Computed example of a mutant assay.
Amino acid sequence: MRCLHDALDSRVLLTDGSLARRLRQQDLDVDRDLWGAEDCLELLNLTCAGLVRDLHEAYLRAGADVLRTHTLDASPLSLDAIGLADHAFYLNHAAAQIASEAVDAVPGRGRRRFVLGLVRDQGWDTTPKEIERAVSLQVEGLLSGGVDGIVLDITPGVGRAPMFLNGAARARATVGARAPIFLQGGVDGTAFSDHARALADGVIFYRPGAPSRGRWLRRAIDEEGISLLGGGDTPEDTAELDRLLRLEAEDSLRPLNAALRARLGTVEESEPPSSLIRPDPLLAELS
């Protein structure tokens, strides 16, 4: 298994960009490709796997380190609203397989790439037991499809994290996997409880990326403490963010994150560890 936990623990990594926006630009047949459910683009993991994989690969070629599975609305609780809850496991499994195959297909040129299985809290109004059961089924599908880790996108401070974490942990035990389970925190200062943090394998501090000039990226790294940067909307955005990250990096590839800097002391006084994403000679030439 690729060492996603170690990579996020030390570097600021770059994700892919928006799949949903790109998919909506495609010439889709609602009845054939979306089974009549116009707003459920996650069904394309089953009906248009090649299209989803092509978009994943485009972001990898642009420089993304991390692919997030196309599973924002792939919970059985969300799918139940359109009568497709029974397809939840297969949909998540397929999404994980597609992203994993894309990572294996696009040469990393010495860099390690990762797949994060994405589970988002959509605010379902149901019992904690039902939420835990739904999360467990979704995570089972993602893990069996080959993701390197699970990220639970939950608003901190609302008390829902433990049921998500318990469901994910149950799925991991059922599948017999070792992939880490992360909480995703924003950079607005809202924190998860100590109990929730103890149940998770770590917290990913995520910030959407914007391919604009200025010192926002250095502030995001040093002051906001991000560990994962969103890849923008298009592969072109991702390519520009890849370039900006490399300009901020000690090894011309990816900068150390604030947590590691704090453990090391000042970068000037400490020897940075070897990059878990080995420098890409081709990218170095382009810097």
Results as ranks from 00 to 15, higher is better:
130 E>V: 13
257 N>Q: 09
128 P>K: 12
210 A>V: 15
66 V>A: 14
160 R>W: 13
248 E>R: 07
226 I>T: 04
197 R>P: 07
249 A>P: 01
191 A>D: 08
104 D>V: 14
21 R>E: 08
194 D>T: 15
271 E>I: 01
77 L>N: 03
194 D>E: 15
1 M>P: 11
22 R>C: 05
21 R>N: 07
184 Q>F: 00
240 E>F: 14
184 Q>I: 03
57 E>S: 05
51 L>W: 00
178 R>E: 13
65 D>I: 01
21 R>M: 10
150 I>E: 13
246 R>W: 08
274 S>P: 03
247 L>T: 15
202 G>S: 09
153 D>S: 09
231 G>H: 03
263 R>I: 03
240 E>Y: 10
229 L>C: 04
56 H>Q: 12
62 A>V: 04
204 I>K: 01
271 E>M: 00
248 E>I: 03
133 R>E: 02
109 R>A: 07
20 A>W: 01
37 A>E: 02
225 G>C: 05
176 G>A: 00
168 A>D: 09
118 L>C: 11
72 L>R: 10
76 P>V: 00
101 E>D: 13
172 R>A: 10
77 L>W: 00
90 Y>K: 15
55 L>F: 12
126 T>M: 00
125 D>N: 14
26 Q>C: 03
68 R>S: 13
53 R>M: 13
127 T>P: 12
8 L>N: 06
84 L>V: 02
272 P>C: 06
165 L>C: 04
113 R>M: 14
184 Q>R: 13
139 V>F: 14
116 L>P: 06
204 I>Y: 05
187 V>Y: 14
241 L>N: 07
264 L>K: 12
219 R>S: 12
207 R>L: 15
139 V>W: 09
53 R>A: 12
116 L>I: 13
171 A>P: 11
270 S>I: 09
278 R>V: 00
109 R>P: 02
7 A>Q: 07
223 E>W: 03
69 T>F: 15
118 L>W: 14
94 A>D: 07
257 N>W: 13
191 A>N: 06
111 R>D: 02
277 I>N: 01
123 G>K: 04
267 V>I: 15
256 L>R: 03
37 A>C: 02
85 A>Q: 04
155 T>F: 10
